[in-house]
Amino acid sequence: MWRFLLTVIRRDLLLAARRKGDWLTSQFFFVMVVSMFPLGIGADPEQLRRVAGGVLWVAALLASLLSLQRLYADDHRDGSLEQMLLSPQPALILALGKAIAHWLIFGLPLLVIAPLLGLQFALPPDAIGTLVIALAIGTPVLSLLGGVGAALTLGLRGGGTLLTLLILPLYVPALIFGAGAVDGVLAGLGAEAQLSLLGAFMGLCLLLAPWVTGAALRVSVD
């Protein structure tokens, strides 16, 4: 089982290393969406600070959806998804491996970029620290729940748009707790409560999402 899980992760990392353009796109998307906001709402540092948490989180949700469209689509097209489903290991391990690989490729770089964008939004250092911690706990949720959507919309017309419709509402708790953590620090209330709730939500997703994704993959490939 471990060999299977590790092979799935290593495989996706290897593929990502061979095609850097693919995953860099969603990182740049994240940076650009965030940079559009000051242009839209004005550059008043006070105002920017107030919306920073929300803006960064919403941008992270959108960027994750962009990258999730391809999570299973390429493997589905060239037949390797079927081969992975035919391996002796259950599909939930496959889904878990794919989610971990997606997080390493998508979520981890986000943690590096986010502090820089936080500076642009005039966030104080402690709020930036909380932002990074919240993203570290919250972005796995995006990879896990997004995997469900990606598996359900596999090979459908307009799969990308559909994925957005299905998954964005499910992201709401992650958005509220994640952005709330940053706001909590700014308001001087601390972020422990939000971060614990976010962690609990992430734990629940970790337990259930791979299982649902595996079932959805079987349904979509049938």
Partner: peptide, 10 residues
């Protein structure tokens, strides 16, 4: 299967 399951980049 019909599709080979061979990854182009590897």
């Amino acid at each position: 299967a019909h599709a080979n399951g061979v990854k182009d980049d590897l």
